[in-house]
Amino acid sequence: MTGRKRPPITNRVRELRERHGQMSQAALGDAIGVTRQTVVAIEKGHYSPSLESAFRIARLFGVGVEDVFGWDEPPA
């Protein structure tokens, strides 16, 4: 849509959500203060959440931010 290259950010949100008692996308959205559509966009890698939301997701699942999000690019 915007023509910008997406940053190589990966995430395990869907996996953690399913491990967390099959939590729904709407429930995760409510818990961190975003819409279900935003959770969908995060899981698909179409949207990189703010640092605040990243921490909220990590804390909700009881893991560190780097356990949820990664930078999928070989070091220069």
């Binding site: 975003v34 819409t35 935003t38 966009a41 949207y47 959440p49």
Partner: peptide, 8 residues
């Protein structure tokens, strides 16, 4: 009642 979120 919910304001637009950070993506919207």
């Amino acid at each position: 009642d919910t304001p637009p979120d950070e993506r919207e």
